[in-house]
Design a protein around this nucleic acid. Structure first.
Lengths: 128, 128
DNA sequence: GTCAAATTGTTTGGAACCCAAACAAAAACT
DNA sequence: AGTTTTTGTTTGGGTTCCAAACAATTTGAC
């Protein structure tokens, strides 16, 4: 019951999110944010940060690279690829973040500040 | 932020759920419950109830049938397959439901009754 | 009653996701 | 110098889902 309701709420939020950031899943946005904050980060470190397998990253990064959002550059350690956002990657990320901000506002509008705090608190009790 | 926390909570609940009901995803349990409550239900109706495409059901039902949990019988309308739980399907479902009950208790133990009501209320505000 | 239209389950092809095992290239350690 | 470890990659697998096309069957219109 609770799990079901959690899923419904998450889906509602996700749908709104998806409407805010066309063509970029939450996971992808997370990757772009991380690369933006850590320019030159290695694929393995990024996989670690995202709690995904190295092999999972390959295809994802291939796509982001094909869309011209990130760039792989061979590192001094020639086994590694350093990751950077391209100009258009930074621009798309900025646009996405603005969309996310609007999204947060729409969601926040459904709750008072006190309710929001309470909800986060209760969710924490379940997660932790 | 809120979407992220929702996802964490949902994952926590899901992990606990998975530990309760080995080898049966929440979706599968939902299907078994529905078929149990509506013996002879048609594949299309079941797909409707689960908000999935007819074509999605085929593979899922193939698996459940291969595991000997459900049975397809040609209906009077010979286009249709009526669905029934087999004996072992009913037994497995009963076992799963007991596991889920224990699961709910474990989750409930993290919250007081008042907190639980409050959480469901707040989640409703977000979903609706 | 006959013939077009709708419905049912199915197949095929595809899209996101994800992991594990194996591999070559490169680096680090001994 | 030789062994071990790390990195990115490929391959193969699994899950979950949808859309389009199809034959069999039923329904509806005339």
């Amino acid at each position: 019951m609770l799990g079901y309701r959690l899923r419904l709420a998450q889906q509602a939020v996700f749908r709104d999110f998806a409407a805010s950031v066309q063509g970029l899943s939450p996971g992808r946005v997370g990757l772009l944010i991380y690369v933006d904050a850590n320019p030159g980060v290695t694929q393995s470190r990024l996989a670690e940060a995202a709690e995904r397998d190295r092999s999972t990253m390959v295809g994802v990064l291939d796509q982001l690279e094909a869309r011209g959002l990130i760039e792989r550059r061979r590192g001094v350690d020639r086994r590694t690829n350093g990751l950077w956002l391209t100009r258009s990657g930074r621009m798309l990320l900025a646009r996405a973040l603005r969309g996310i901000a609007r999204h947060e506002q729409r969601i926040a509008a459904r709750l008072t500040a006190a309710e929001r705090r309470r909800l986060l608190d209760l969710l924490g009790k379940i997660s932790g």
